[in-house]
């Protein structure tokens, strides 16, 4: 079973919830940090990252001896990442999406591909024995999605019984790529107008992907009650509320997981995990 923890708005406590769920899930859990632009789960899980793989985009390389400047590559490229001008064929790496069309369609076979590294995958085990992996987008590189895609494809060390994935914030392609194929979307929000606005965006994605969803209200007590009203109206279950507590905020600031700072939350997260599992099982029951 794969649970993706998402939020829309950043900083609502996605990583806090994802890592806490992973920690109560036991040793058969694999936790993936798919927020490749700002990956933080490792700061709370403290894995020993001893696996590493460079990933990126297959970039075309033109053999000038074979190229006839016919322009086919430029014609098929939807990203204008390859251009033929006079007797020169230019490749613009930062525009290339690595689709392979130019290489495949070059009539002279003058194009080959080589990996343009845009990020790295790292993985390892935590002291609790759970498997962890993350992607890191290289600074200055624009495209997060290929890193997430490769992270999803990276073979686990062992078959996990439960996958907990931490999604990036926002509501565009990186979030969609993370949510695709999930069994459940756990949406963490805060009870403020910003939290609600962005929650609606990510609910829209979960609906479009037909993934059942539930909500965690973090920092409960700040703001207003409109998230509750929205969830009731949309039939979205609120599965957990975490009140605004200074000791939790301070603990997280120091890099301590929620359960380290507040072990009294353990039963609540165990109940949350059980509730999600029940919902998923009910969803897929014959």
């Amino acid at each position: 079973m794969r649970i993706v923890v998402a939020s829309g708005k950043g900083g609502t406590g996605k990583t806090t919830v994802a890592t806490s769920l992973a920690l109560v899930g036991g040793a058969s859990v694999r936790c993936l940090d798919c927020d490749v632009e700002a990956p933080n789960a490792a700061l709370f899980l403290h894995p020993v990252l001893d696996r590493r793989q460079e990933v990126g985009i297959p970039l075309p390389r033109v053999d000038t001896a074979l190229c006839t400047h016919c322009g086919k590559c430029a014609e098929v490229c939807q990203y204008h990442a390859i251009a033929v001008l006079g007797q020169t064929t230019l490749v613009f790496p930062e525009l290339c999406h690595g689709c392979g069309s130019c290489t495949r369609l070059c009539p002279e076979g003058a194009i080959t591909e080589h990996l343009h590294v845009t990020g790295v995958l790292e993985g390892g085990m935590t002291a609790e024995g759970l498997e962890f992996a993350r992607g890191l987008l290289q600074v200055g590189e624009p495209m997060a999605v290929p890193i997430i895609r490769e992270l999803k494809r990276w073979p686990p060390l062992r078959r996990p019984a439960l996958e907990i994935w931490d999604a990036p914030p926002g509501a565009s392609c990186p979030v969609v790529e993370t949510l695709r194929g999930a069994d459940f979307a756990l949406l963490v929000t805060e009870p403020t107008p910003f939290g609600l606005h962005d929650l609606k965006q990510v609910v829209g994605i979960a609906r479009a992907l037909e993934i059942p969803a539930g909500v965690v209200v973090n920092r409960d007590g700040i703001g207003d009650r409109k998230v509750d009203a929205y969830c009731a109206d949309q039939g979205l279950p609120i599965l957990l509320r975490i009140p605004m507590e200074r000791r939790i905020a301070e603990g997280l600031a120091r890099g301590r997981s929620l359960l380290e700072t507040a072990p009294d939350y353990r039963p609540a997260f165990q109940a949350l995990l059980a509730a999600i599992q029940d919902r998923v099982n009910a969803e897929y029951a014959p």
Binding site: G10, V36, E37, A144, G170, L252, G255
Partner: peptide, 27 residues
């Protein structure tokens, strides 16, 4: 936008100055 990828690069390029609102947390 948050992050460091495409939307951030698109938003920040050509700026004369960036102010980063940081948070004193590990993350």
């Amino acid at each position: 936008p948050p992050g460091i990828g495409c939307p951030v690069i698109a938003a920040a390029s050509g700026a004369d100055l960036a102010l980063i609102v940081a948070e004193p947390t590990a993350a």
